[in-house]
Amino acid sequence: MIRAENIIKQFGEQEVLKGVSMEFLPGKTNLIIGRSGAGKTVFLKILVGLMEPTDGKVWYDNVDFFSLNKKQVREIRLKVGMLFQGSALFDSMKVIENVRFPLDMFSNMTLAEKNQRVDWCLERVGLTGAHEKYPSELSGGMQKRVGIARAIVMEPKYLFCDEPNSGLDPRTALLIDELIQDITYDYKMTTIINTHDMNSVMEIGDNIAYLHEGRLVWQGSKDQVLSSENELLQGFIFASPFLQRLRAAALK
């Protein structure tokens, strides 16, 4: 289980996170939502250890992440997979090499075993036959799928996704959401997604945390989002006049 405890992050005078505490549900899709500049990305980077908090703790199964030595950090990281906003695929490597990279680095498998594992991962994300392509030859949606395949190749316990739908059309975004949710349930992973995509919130949000100006102001499930009385959350979700009219009509 992952738990954040009173996370504070300052950049000079600016306080981006003002004491965020949160617990993520194991084996579920946990969404962190909020407006641009709310501190979501900084929070996610702190959770995965790419950034150190000014104060506060991050617990991985009751282990304080920032008190670990390098070797222990590496052991935790082998249990973590991450899908980056821009997919972060290595341009000079083919799809097969990108997905195999963590195995090449850390496993003792033979090449045949590694390739078999890569085949399985690519099949799982619906990209059979893309092995020999370079990232530049793939569409945005396909790059995300390769990113997911690479993130799950080491069979992680935790999956982090930073804006998995950014730059994708609504249909592809939905497919990526479904894929992430299926993988989460099938492999009992704890998935933490940073997003401001409302479709994702309503489709796959088992546990949703709303950040506003560096503070956690609401937490609940997708079923509780619509009925929530929290004005900040409602202002975020029903931001457009169209959605406001829709909500008013629904309430009538």
Binding site: L50, R77, L78, F84, Q85, A88, F101
Partner: peptide, 10 residues
């Protein structure tokens, strides 16, 4: 974010 991705892999 390639460096971050590698860092995160360990």
């Amino acid at each position: 974010e390639h460096i971050d991705a590698m860092e995160l892999m360990g």
